[in-house]
């Protein structure tokens, strides 16, 4: 049952996802507490990314993908309800992708794009402020302040990913979804992103899919372990990594499979 407790940013239950006839997620229920970082871990193909993409209806783009289940935002908004515009939802639930995907525009335009289409800024000055602030929070401002009009694709991979984070927070979402945000980055860039996540959780609820168990333990307070489309175990990160309840989880974190 869905808990009406509003300490949760997002509550899900009875989630089933099919790709055509193939089942990808099998009856998952998971709640995400506000202003905390939750990691989704598990072997490749376990459905963790698919599940993540359900949370801002990114799967709508894929024709053959069929999502069923209850998703409640802030305890009262059903995100799959026909009354909900997917655009409004995504304004509240931002996303950062596995591979940095800046638009082939200037750095400034990349960040300003979201506020512009949603009409968040009422003046050019305000828009400038939002861009500056978002880049600041993403820890990128100092590096790019002199070249805001350069094409974003000229940045390094780590900078591009932080730009994508800045782009996501520029529309002031409540939740940020991160789909293996560091998998395409080197260790130094990864460390920077992880620091950033730690700072961001003050203001946002973050849900992160990751392959790296050490990353999960470093950044998250809650961890969910997925296997073959099932949610095997969910709990405090420390508990999951030290004494998990399920043997399967233990096998995975100790590296016996996955």
């Amino acid at each position: 049952m869905v808990d009406q407790n509003s300490n949760y940013a997002l509550q899900t239950s009875e989630v089933y996802v099919h790709y055509g006839k193939k089942m990808a997620i099998n009856n998952v229920a998971l709640n995400f507490p506000k202003n905390e970082v939750t990691s989704l871990i598990g072997p490749s193909g376990c459905g963790k990314s698919t599940f993540l993409r359900c949370l801002n209806r990114m799967n709508d783009v894929i024709d053959i993908c069929n999502v069923k289940g209850k998703f409640l935002l802030n305890g009262n908004v059903d995100i799959y309800s026909p009354d909900i515009q997917v655009e409004t939802l995504r304004e509240k639930v931002g996303m950062v992708f596995q591979k940095p995907n800046p638009f082939p525009k200037t750095i400034y335009e990349n960040v300003a794009y979201g506020p512009k289409i949603h009409g968040i800024a009422s003046s050019q000055n305000e828009l400038d402020e939002i861009v500056k602030d978002s880049l600041h929070r993403a820890g990128l401002y100092e590096e790019v302040k002199d070249r805001m009009d350069d094409i974003a694709t000229g940045l390094s991979g780590g900078q591009q990913q932080r730009l994508c984070i800045a782009r996501a927070i520029a529309i002031r979402p409540e939740i940020i979804l991160m789909d293996e945000p560091c998998s395409a980055l080197d260790p130094i860039a990864t460390a920077k992103i992880e620091d950033l996540i730690n700072e961001l959780k003050e203001n946002y609820t973050i849900i992160i899919v990751t392959h790296s168990m050490s990353q999960a333990s470093r950044v998250s307070s809650k961890t969910a372990f997925f296997h073959l489309g099932n949610l095997v175990e969910y709990g405090e990160t420390g508990k999951i990594f030290t004494k998990p309840d399920k043997e399967q989880t233990n096998d995975y974190i100790t590296g016996r499979f996955g």
Binding site: N56, M58, V61, V86, E87, T88, L89, R90, E91, G94, M95, V96, F97, K99, N101, P102, F103, P104, Y113, G114, I117, H118, C164, R167, A168, I171, L177
Partner: peptide, 22 residues
């Protein structure tokens, strides 16, 4: 690349906005 489309959708852009602006 599909990732650009997803990047735009993830911000809450409509299809036509994504097409016209990205």
């Amino acid at each position: 690349p599909q990732s650009l489309r997803e990047g735009s959708y993830a911000i809450g852009a409509t299809k036509s906005e994504t097409i016209k602006k990205v």
